[in-house]
Write a protein that binds this DNA or RNA. Structure first.
Lengths: 208, 208
DNA sequence: ACCTGAACACCGTTCAAGT
DNA sequence: ACCTGAACACCGTTCAAGT
């Protein structure tokens, strides 16, 4: 069983693999040790306990997150492109991002995106508190949308399912709407529509 | 230790209390049994295993969720009131709602809210697929916002924290913005602003 | 019909001991 | 400096046995 020295990096890499492929619950100290061919307790020597291990993974994730490059002509287009990029990052690393979230490093992870949004807010003429609100509204919107999406994807075969619900229920004599609501939402389209509507509403309105 | 017969309802009530107060992780079969003064195994007789127990709790939650009463004159006002009510429900039962989510009963739980939103969409002149998109955009927005809020509240003392981040970073010569982003977001205000902006954007725009 | 303890296969963590 | 096994206090679940 026992092979020579095993580095902290090896342990972290193996743990990251486990989390990426099977989620954080699959990361047990015993399984990790078994995969590395060591005794459980040697993991403790290298990285400390499970919490410390997760902390290290989170550090890694935050550091690895790529740059955000806004694309498009108008501030609206550029903000939408930032939102899209953000959504992709979040969707591509769901488990790791969830860990980052739980450990309170979300703000640091989103700093580049925030800075990009600030630039666009300024370009659109918003400043100060209004600009800050703009940045946060977009960020919450994107993160929230992805969280909802993820929850829906993970949810195994909705028990009654929107389908039967909206087949049985009255939809105010609007059969096209009932049909639409009985299908699963088209996540990409819904996301684009929502972000665009939010951005327009924020840039246009000033009613309180 | 052993007292007389214990009903399924007693077990469910005790389990619900545990989840409400300490979250789903605190609901272990052994702790539940200890609280009831029975052997662990008698829980299995009454409700089956842990999964079945959680399923039962979820059923309860879905059934107990109150009606939604839209308030206000204009469709916009009424939609915002629905969003507010929805947010309150979600915030008041965070653990139970999370369980509902995980078990794929979200659609059924949100049916009353969806129906209220459909009415307002119709009142605002939207029909068919557009109305469906409106309903879902608002629903995703509300649920997403609450999920993000919850994650932020649970997150223990952000490691670097938005504060230092935005103190150190350039904010494009906009010190008021840097100050605003260095404070934690005012969730209520941010929610209201976002929903209103989204609704306006959805009701006004038709650009693709 | 209802409750029991014993047992199994898992956890994370600590500790004293080896080299 | 690095790795080990034994032990502790937890899990969820099954099962044969009691009344």
């Amino acid at each position: 069983m026992a092979r020579g020295a095993r580095s902290r990096e090896e342990v972290l890499a193996a743990a990251a693999e486990l989390v990426k492929r099977q989620g954080p619950d699959a990361l047990t100290m015993r399984r990790l040790a078994a995969g590395l061919g060591t005794a459980v307790t040697s993991i403790y020597w290298h990285v400390g306990g499970r919490e410390a291990l997760l902390d290290a993974l989170v550090e890694r994730t935050v550091a690895d997150l790529g740059e955000i490059r806004p694309r498009g002509r108008t501030p609206e287009q550029r903000v939408v492109s930032v939102a899209r990029a953000l959504r992709r990052q979040l969707r591509d690393h769901p488990h790791l991002v969830a860990l980052v979230h739980e450990r309170g490093l979300t703000d640091r992870m989103f700093l580049p995106a925030q800075q990009a949004l600030v630039r666009e807010a300024h370009a659109a003429g918003l400043r100060g508190g209004r600009a800050a609100e703009f940045v946060r509204a977009v960020q919450f919107q994107v993160v929230g949308h992805v969280l909802v999406e993820r929850n829906r994807e993970r949810a195994p075969a909705q028990h009654p399912g929107g389908e039967e619900l909206w087949r049985a229920e009255a939809a105010g004599d609007d059969p096209a709407l009932a049909r639409a609501l009985s299908r699963p939402p088209a996540a990409d389209r819904l996301f684009a529509t929502s972000v665009r509507a939010l951005v327009r509403g924020l840039l246009a309105g000033d009613g309180g």
